[in-house]
């Protein structure tokens, strides 16, 4: 069945149901956001433990973490995606076969989350390390003096007092995470960018759909900026400046 896309208006092209491609774009956006949220979340967890490791007295751990953050900051995300998408499953399966297990298959969604989390983890390590270092030493020492257990110091004192310092950096990281999901188009995951490309190719209305995807990305980043600005303002309440 051939559809005459040339004679359709903009709103017909972007309509939610077929033959419009709006629904495909929105489900691509949903996939992008899912990957971004999960990758960001796991990246923050990696970053938190990475920062604690980097600030620890363990020389080996700090060196290994230094290698991790330096490597991620130097290797293009596109190359990391290839490494995790193609090389990692091969390595895992080789190891599994040599132990006599069956191979596993890493699906696109999982690999995408893995890549984003791996990249975000490295950047988040740096952001969180700097914000933990900005907490006045006396607070932590006071907590130690009260014999508060270490894990409790972490979640009752260190994390709450580090958040105001970390939020601007973390908001930047979230924007990077949403934009990095677009790279997964290269390995064939139908997130927003590839969905737009497919719609563009099928309808021969290249500019319309690619610009529509751009508008959606812009909307997401503008909304996130507003949200983070609100959060920053909220956490800054009661903080003393310039002291």
């Amino acid at each position: 069945m051939l559809i005459d896309y040339q004679s359709m208006s903009l709103w017909e092209l972007l309509a939610f149901n077929s033959p419009g491609w709006g629904g495909a774009l929105l489900s691509g956006l949903a996939l992008s956001l899912q990957i971004a949220v999960l990758g960001y979340f796991f990246g923050l967890i990696i970053g938190l433990f990475g920062a604690i490791g980097k600030l620890s007295q363990n020389l080996l751990l700090t060196d290994l973490l230094y290698c991790y953050t330096t490597a991620v900051r130097a290797i293009p995300e596109l190359v990391l995606i290839l490494l995790i998408y193609f090389a990692l499953p091969n390595v895992i399966n080789d190891v599994l076969y040599s132990f006599g297990f069956d191979g596993v298959e890493i699906n696109g969604f999982f690999a995408g989350v893995l890549v984003i989390a791996f990249v975000q983890g490295a950047y988040a390590t740096e952001v969180i390390r700097a914000s933990i270092a900005a907490i006045p030493k006396g607070q932590i020492e006071a907590a130690h003096a009260f014999a508060i257990p270490k894990y409790k110091i972490l979640y009752r004192i260190m994390i709450p007092s580090m958040i105001p310092h970390a939020l601007p950096g973390l908001s930047n990281l979230w924007l990077i995470a949403t934009k990095d999901t677009a790279l997964l188009a290269v390995v064939g995951l139908t997130e927003l960018t590839l969905a737009a490309k497919q719609a563009a190719g099928a309808s021969k209305q290249q500019l319309t759909f690619l610009l529509a995807a751009g508008a959606l990305y812009l909307l997401v980043s503008l909304l996130s900026e507003v949200l983070f600005k609100y959060l920053i303002k909220r956490t800054e309440k009661g903080q003393t400046h310039g002291s």
Binding site: K179, T181, A182, K197, G214, S221, L222
Partner: peptide, 23 residues
């Protein structure tokens, strides 16, 4: 600045090459 920084570079490259390239 907001528009360029708020959208992925891959999409921008495609907008110029496929989008404007087809116009």
């Amino acid at each position: 600045c907001s528009i360029i920084r708020g959208t992925p570079l891959l999409l921008q490259i495609w907008i110029f090459y496929y989008g404007f390239g087809s116009v």
